[in-house]
C-alpha cells in the first residue's frame, strides 16, 4: 500500500518492503528522516538510528512530538503512512514549479490544437478608437443615449435590435411594443428620503427598474402556471348538486 508513494520518493528497497516486519518499518522511517524530512541535524539522529535499542521507543515518541505528528495509534504502519505523506508534501513544496507543469489543466491546454477563429468579431479591438466611434454612430442612428463605456452602449443596442428590430417585431410591431399608461414618475412616492434631490432621483429610477424586473418575473411565473394548467385543468360544474336561481 505504500509502494507508489515510496517509489515517488525514490526509496531504494521499494520492491522488497515488508510492512508487517516492524524493524523494516523502523528502517523506512529512519530513511525518510535522513533523506527527506531532515528534522534533526545528522549528528542528533543517533537515538533513532539505534533501531534495536530498548530506548528506541522513547526516542521515537520524542521524534513524533517534534514533528507534531497527530497520529496516536498502536499500529506503527498508520504512523508510517503519515510520515510518507509528510515527506511527499515537503518534496512537492520544494519543487512546486516543476510539478505544476504536469497538472491536468496545463497538460490539456498544451495538447489542444490552436483553432483560428473564423468569426471576424473575435479580431475586433474592443478598446480601439474605431470600435468606440462605430458604436457611437450606431447608437445615434438608433436614438440610444451612449454610455461612456462603449461595451455597455453595445449591450443596449443589442437589446433594441433583438426586441424591436427582429423579423417578427417588424412584421407585427403591436405585439412587441409594450403598451401602458405613463405613470407620473415625478409624483411617485419613493417611500424614503435620501436628503439629496439627485440621489432621490437615482433611487427612484432604480426602484422603477426593480419593479419592472419583478413584473417580468411575475409574468414568467404566470406563463409557467398557464402551461401547467393546460395539463391539469378541467373545470366543471354540476347544477344537479345544488339548486341555483328561481
Amino acid at each position: 500500500m505504500f509502494k507508489r508513494k515510496l517509489s515517488a520518493l525514490n526509496y531504494p528497497q521499494v520492491d522488497s518492503l515488508n510492512t508487517s516486519d516492524e524493524n523494516e518499518v523502523k528502517k523506512v522511517i529512519l530513511w525518510l528522516e535522513e533523506n527527506k524530512i531532515k528534522k534533526y541535524k545528522p549528528e542528533s539522529r543517533q537515538n533513532i538510528r539505534n533501531i534495536n535499542s530498548s530506548e528506541w521507543k522513547k526516542s521515537y515518541d520524542k521524534y513524533k512530538q517534534d514533528l507534531a505528528c497527530p497520529i496516536k495509534s498502536d499500529v506503527i504502519t498508520d504512523e508510517l503512512d503519515w510520515f510518507i505523506k509528510y515527506a511527499l508534501e515537503l518534496e512537492y513544496n520544494s519543487k512546486k514549479a516543476t510539478y505544476e507543469k504536469h497538472t491536468v489543466e496545463n497538460l490539456k491546454s498544451a495538447s489542444t490544437p490552436n483553432v483560428i477563429a473564423a468569426n471576424p468579431l473575435d479580431h475586433l479591438d474592443f478598446g480601439g478608437k474605431d470600435f468606440e466611434s462605430g458604436v457611437k454612430n450606431l447608437a445615434q442612428i438608433l436614438k440610444i443615449s451612449p454610455h461612456p463605456n462603449p461595451l455597455i452602449t453595445l449591450k443596449a443596442i443589442s437589446k433594441v435590435v433583438c426586441n424591436r428590430l427582429s423579423r417578427n417585431a417588424i412584421e407585427k410591431p403591436n405585439d412587441f411594443i409594450i403598451k401602458g399608461t405613463p405613470f407620473p414618475f415625478e409624483d411617485a412616492n419613493l417611500g424614503f428620503d435620501l436628503g439629496d434631490v439627485l440621489l432621490n432621483r437615482a433611487a427612484k429610477i432604480l426602484t422603477l427598474l426593480y419593479i419592472q424586473n419583478l413584473r417580468d418575473l411575475q409574468t414568467k411565473s404566470n406563463e409557467l402556471i398557464v402551461a401547467a394548467q393546460s395539463i391539469t385543468a378541467n373545470p366543471k360544474t354540476d347544477t344537479k348538486l345544488g339548486k341555483v336561481g328561481k
Binding site: 385543468a233 360544474t237 345544488g242 341555483v244
Partner: peptide, 28 residues
C-alpha cells in the same frame, strides 16, 4: 344552498391545503 362545483372529501383536503392553487390547478 349547496355548491355546484363537484367535490369529494379528497378534493376538500387538497383545497384546504392549497388554497387558490387548487382552483388554479383545476382550472377554475
Amino acid at each position: 344552498s349547496k355548491g355546484i362545483i363537484p367535490m369529494n372529501a379528497r378534493d376538500l383536503e387538497e383545497a384546504l391545503e392549497m388554497g387558490m392553487d387548487w382552483s388554479l390547478r383545476e382550472g377554475y
